[in-house]
Computed example of a mutant assay.
Amino acid sequence: MAAAAPFDQRFGLDRRVVLPGPLALDGGGSLAPVEIAYETYGALAPGADNAILVCHALTGDQHVASPHPRTGKPGWWERMVGPGRPIDTDRRLVICANVLGSCMGSSGPATTDPATGRPWGMAFPVITVRDMVRAQALLLDHLGIGRLAAVVGGSMGGMQALSWAATFPARVGAALVIASTARHSAQNIAFHELGRQAVMADPRWKGGDYDAAEPPAAGLAVARMAAHITYLSEAGLTEKFGRRLQARPDSPDGAKSFGFDADFQVESYLRHQGLSFVDRFDANAYLYITRAMDYFDLAEEHGGRLADAFSPATRFCLVSFDTDWLYPTADARAIVHALNAAGAPTSFVELSSPYGHDAFLLESPALDRVVRGFLGTGT
């Protein structure tokens, strides 16, 4: 294995690397070269045994604990990753890589096809979650990290954590899987197909060959609105918005327009979520990543029995939220049962939160305690 790349203590160190590959893909063929954008936090120990890989969700990126370069907003898990935080960068080297197929620097439909000199677009190969994990393994090889102390992820990040443990069990000391699943349900796939069809129905999509200056923003915004509903809970939406009407300059207390403007506060909120999303995400990347999530079926990859995906070589912690209807607690329990059958050391907790699936991204002292406790010993 190559000598470890030099790490230092600078917080939020942004890096990009082009690896020669080839990277074999589940769909057939291979990808070469492989470009990966990533960030590191903290320092690698002399024994290279303190690295934690944090895997991001569908619309996340490598900027886990530092400002997003496009929006200027704080990192998506800044409350969790940092000096003295549950994932403690005073003790750990934390790595977060932009997934294969995304649009924040890693190889994907928005990056340049070396054969044409133009963006890949829909000529980019369809990828899987396991392909994403294999690309991350190439990155760790480049960094000289043979074994991870832990891999951590929520939602699609949890899928990656599971796939890491199944694909490279000898390289993963512990896996922390939060608000995730071992495969998508028909309902999950249906919501993603709704979003994909919204993108592809936008006249600006042009079969995926759109100008970056004129993307299919309307379709992508609708896709984001539909998906965002699945990240919330009915109780949370009711508490935050109820049926309250949206204030306007001519109606400060809100009034029905008897038209199709955003009369209700929840309508205005969803429209804002959609419009702000298109400023930071690529439409084709959205298609590719949602397809990868829909294809994810860990049992299918291991002969149809989920327990066969796991090895006692890795220690696991599963976390679910009681109001998460996207990946409900039943999904986590199915994984726990498979882990028990495989003889893998496993802990599980269901946390209470009004915020639905998004709870893992929001302030949660209970989740902080679980993460700190699981990563504090034995990794």
Rank of each mutant, 00 (worst) to 15 (best):
residue 262 A to I: 04
residue 317 C to T: 15
residue 269 Y to I: 08
residue 323 T to E: 14
residue 340 N to I: 05
residue 261 D to G: 15
residue 301 E to W: 12
residue 357 H to Y: 02
residue 268 S to C: 06
residue 323 T to V: 09
residue 319 V to R: 06
residue 294 D to A: 12
residue 280 R to F: 11
residue 327 Y to S: 12
residue 270 L to S: 02
residue 283 A to Q: 02
residue 264 F to W: 15
residue 323 T to W: 08
residue 342 A to P: 00
residue 286 Y to I: 00
residue 367 L to K: 05
residue 262 A to R: 11
residue 252 P to A: 09
residue 301 E to Q: 15
residue 339 L to N: 00
residue 261 D to S: 08
residue 305 R to K: 12
residue 303 G to I: 04
residue 296 F to G: 00
residue 294 D to G: 05
residue 357 H to F: 01
residue 371 V to A: 09
residue 262 A to M: 09
residue 352 S to C: 06
residue 313 A to Q: 10
residue 353 S to F: 10
residue 288 Y to M: 02
residue 345 P to Y: 05
residue 310 F to A: 04
residue 298 L to K: 07
residue 327 Y to H: 15
residue 301 E to T: 06
residue 289 I to A: 03
residue 270 L to M: 14
residue 361 L to Y: 13
residue 360 F to I: 03
residue 343 G to T: 12
residue 266 V to M: 13
residue 259 G to S: 02
residue 304 G to R: 11
residue 265 Q to M: 13
residue 366 A to Y: 05
residue 255 A to P: 04
residue 336 V to C: 05
residue 320 S to Q: 04
residue 306 L to Y: 11
residue 256 K to E: 10
residue 367 L to F: 04
residue 265 Q to P: 00
residue 353 S to R: 09
residue 327 Y to A: 15
residue 310 F to G: 02
residue 328 P to W: 00
residue 306 L to Q: 06
residue 291 R to M: 08
